[in-house]
Design a binder for these strands. Structure first.
Lengths: 292, 292
DNA sequence: ATTCATTGATGCATTAAATTTATCACAAAA
DNA sequence: TTTTGTGATAAATTTAATGCATCAATGAAT
């Protein structure tokens, strides 16, 4: 079997016009060339597709059958090519994207919204995990990319900083420091701190610890809260104070007050990590949205 | 867009092997030719489909996408060609076939059985009508063929005799002639005849009338029965006698006896009619079954 | 380290294929 | 009858695809 799409397209055109000359003209061919093509197609089929009785061209039974189906087939081919182009451009396909809870709590929702808008045909496969686990999965190419807040020494990945969030402090509303506009780290030296467990966000945890050490004290951690809301509630209950990134200040409700910190202050750094040899074009588009 | 199936087949082969030389060998091509084909395909898509990193060939994102779909497409093409061949051979498609009640009462069921067996993919569109109407519909190409028992002077159709059925006579079982083995037409000259209406089967009606006239009498028709069964029942009731083709003798039940006629006797002739320029290959197959 | 084998890409010549040109035979219309 | 329009055909030409020889790059074997 050696049928080429060119033959099928020509067949369709002849069947549309039932006239070789006009069909040839529309195909930008000469009539003899078109005749040859149809002959070739008929030879492959084994039987005539047209009845040419010296004055008119009509479809045979087999020709009618083929005509009824060829349009769909040609459509399929065109669609396949178009969709492959889209896949090459990252407009189509799947994007397995990892993210941390903290990313989802801050800028990720709006990022995902942009992504959906820009790449509506891309299937998003999201996975929430801790930074370290995400980095590992990216290196194994189980994920096409991930947004994490720690860059460890995982091999086979490249990472790019994408966002920095300054940390502030959440105080109980009866705390004396609430009168201040900004608070220095050192003034918190004697406070009881409520923090998240180390493994939830090792990057931020280390950053906070070293910031405090640079300020001249070691924070007294009295409690580990599993979530930000819980930590804030603990502050409201008067158990201590907790760090919270500035753009999440609205978490603070009754009984607590959010205050920015003076520089130098702990920073939460987000990174986009991807496989070193990664080539999912959806990631390229994602980076465009992130203006990288 | 100028993609040919050859390119897609080559792409598939390379993707199967992830090795240009082996793929080329299997395609009966040289490796450079295959490289060129893939380059051409990649140019049409606009992006690479393979990652050739000097020692291994891997599919890109777009390549994987295409690979996942190209098999189905190539299958569709092959199926379309195969089915078109079948359509050309009459093994596929539709056959609009007309028939008379009397044909259905005799040989048509077994013929249809053979047809279904031989052309299982052909959609049979059956229509029962009187012979004259069928001939008209065939001439209008509303039917691909019809089995009738009269050939009038309808233009644009060709007809071929396909079966002859000798007529016998159905007598009430108390009739004196039942002692005979065969009955001559003339001996029925004084009988009351039950016949079907002229328009139900004009061919047979005329045939019977002229046979009787040749035998030397004009049959006295006392009743017109709408169906064979009804006619036989009327015979059983003693109203008269009726003609019945020999292969339908089993219709005669209690109170009636079937007797063959001596020659010359009325004959029922069946014809296959088709459009003069008809080219439905299913009809060709039908004629093969009929050994024409 | 060096050689060797294997990979896909490239330049050029060759072959194969498709197309154009010019023409024919036929049929319907003027 | 002539003209016009149809598709088919033969030969020439152009175009495209392929084969051949070779290269550079890589990894394995020595």
């Amino acid at each position: 079997m050696n049928i080429e799409l060119r033959l099928l397209k020509s067949f369709q055109m002849v069947a549309d016009h039932l006239n070789f000359r006009r069909a040839a003209e529309e195909l930008n061919l000469t009539q003899p060339a078109l005749s040859r093509q149809i002959q070739q197609l008929e030879e492959e089929i084994g039987k005539p597709l047209f009845d040419r009785d010296k004055r008119s061209v009509k479809l045979t039974h087999a020709g009618r059958f083929l005509y009824g189906r060829v349009a769909e087939l040609l459509n399929d081919v065109e669609a396949l090519v178009k969709e492959t182009r889209e896949a090459a451009n990252g407009e189509r396909g799947a994007l397995a994207l990892g993210y941390t809870e903290s990313a989802m709590a801050s800028f990720l929702p709006s990022l995902l919204r942009s992504l959906r808008q820009r790449l509506p045909k891309v299937l998003l496969q999201l996975k929430q995990e801790h930074s370290e686990q995400l980095a590992r999965e990216v290196s194994l190419q189980r994920l096409d990319a991930a947004i994490i807040s720690l860059v460890g020494n995982v091999h086979g990945i490249t990472s790019t900083p994408i966002a920095t969030e300054a940390m502030g402090i959440v105080l109980p509303d009866n705390h004396p420091l609430t009168v201040k506009k900004e608070i220095s780290l050192l003034s918190l030296a004697k406070e009881n701190f409520i923090l998240f467990p180390y493994q939830v966000n090792p990057g931020l945890f280390s950053n906070i610890m070293s910031s405090c050490q640079n300020a001249g004290f070691v924070p007294k951690i009295i409690e580990e809260a599993q979530s930000r809301i819980l930590a804030v509630n603990m502050v409201a209950a008067g158990l201590g104070v907790t760090f919270l990134s500035e753009n999440l200040a609205y978490y603070c409700g009754q009984g607590t007050v959010f205050k920015p910190l003076k520089n130098p202050k702990p920073l939460m750094q987000y990174y986009l990590v991807e496989p070193a040899n990664g080539e999912n074009p959806c990631v390229v588009e994602l980076k465009k949205i992130l203006k990288l």
